[in-house]
Design a binder for these strands. Sequence first.
DNA 1: GGTCCTATTGGACCAAGGTCCAATTGCCTT
DNA 2: AAGGCAATTGGACCTTGGTCCAATAGGACC
Lengths: 204, 204
Amino acid sequence: MTDPEAIVFVVDDDPSVRRALQRLIRSAGFTVESFASAQEFLGLPRPDIPGCLVLDIHMPGVSGLDLQDELAAAEVNLPIIFLTGYGTVPASVRAMKAGAVDFLEKPVDDRALVVAIHQAVERNRRARLEQAEVREIQRRVESLSPREREVFSLLLTGMLNKQIASELGTTEKTIKVHRGRVMEKMQAGSMAELVRLAGKLGMR
Amino acid sequence: MTDPEAIVFVVDDDPSVRRALQRLIRSAGFTVESFASAQEFLGLPRPDIPGCLVLDIHMPGVSGLDLQDELAAAEVNLPIIFLTGYGTVPASVRAMKAGAVDFLEKPVDDRALVVAIHQAVERNRRARLEQAEVREIQRRVESLSPREREVFSLLLTGMLNKQIASELGTTEKTIKVHRGRVMEKMQAGSMAELVRLAGKLGMR
DNA sequence: GGTCCTATTGGACCAAGGTCCAATTGCCTT
DNA sequence: AAGGCAATTGGACCTTGGTCCAATAGGACC
């Protein structure tokens, strides 16, 4: 159950904690990168592979919760596991509400942490796949001409070519051509497929 | 911002707490029903309207977390707000992971509780609407004959009538009839609509 | 200016879908 | 045994969808 193609980022201001976590997580089969502060973590580019973040709550400067907010604002979708020496209930609730995978108290139970990391990485892997798919579909939509896009969205309402033509002030024949191009550019082999593609973009 | 058509259940073993919560929540515009224990709450039928549950963690007998598990197992989808006198981080994390709306420490901040209740009730209202819709669609699918259901699922793959006919070992004409009945029974005015209905049931 | 590309439109023609009519067969319930 | 329902099929006819070929208009580019 190891995964060298996943990376775990550790952010903790205590060097001895970092060393211990590094050892533990590496032995669980993950690549690990450690940082002493949120700033340090934010300053470096992150490889574009599945991973998660193991984050101490209490750090001088930017706290773990602050970093969570910043990552969310920057749309960095990296699952977070919080560690805390003297965590409070409100802090844990806030973290969990904001989507943290887990919130563990130090001294951390090695097994619990490894389990949480596996869950977090798996969650991230799925999210990344989903994201890649959505982006690909988005790319296809962007390849549509303005007119094709209009036809596309009217197609999704279930209108007939004739109705679309009247709606757009043109003829059915023209709509047929647009329709054919929409199917081609969206790489949809059928109406069913086209509707599902649109659904993945939240188009109704 | 009141809502007499929503009900808030309070479960707490302390009578004075129940009275105080009752007063607060009622003044926020909700109907309230109080219970001294999880058993008492489970023993009575619940009206089929939007609502939520305000639940003390520490109670003799069945604890709040136990009740949360039981409700989940019974597929009772009632959002929960936990209250606790001396809550621990692990308990709050467990509760939040299991889907709790909030986890507040006593003495409870009246405003925070009322906000949480509004969120919980709203969440439940949406979930109930969604659920009702899914059930209605499910009902329609169940009204399909076995053959119609086969045609339905093959339609979703984007196959042509001709292909479906060959797949099912019959003729295109027959499929046309089934297809028409599927559209009628599913109350779908177009392929787009049919595909979306199926999507709501998780059919791919 | 000339060329290339895209968006848009049109005509002709064929394939696929939908509907109205009617009928047969097999199974289950009453 | 009789009735009801599901499944199936057939014919005829019309609508809708899809494709091939072609043309026009407006911009971008050389």
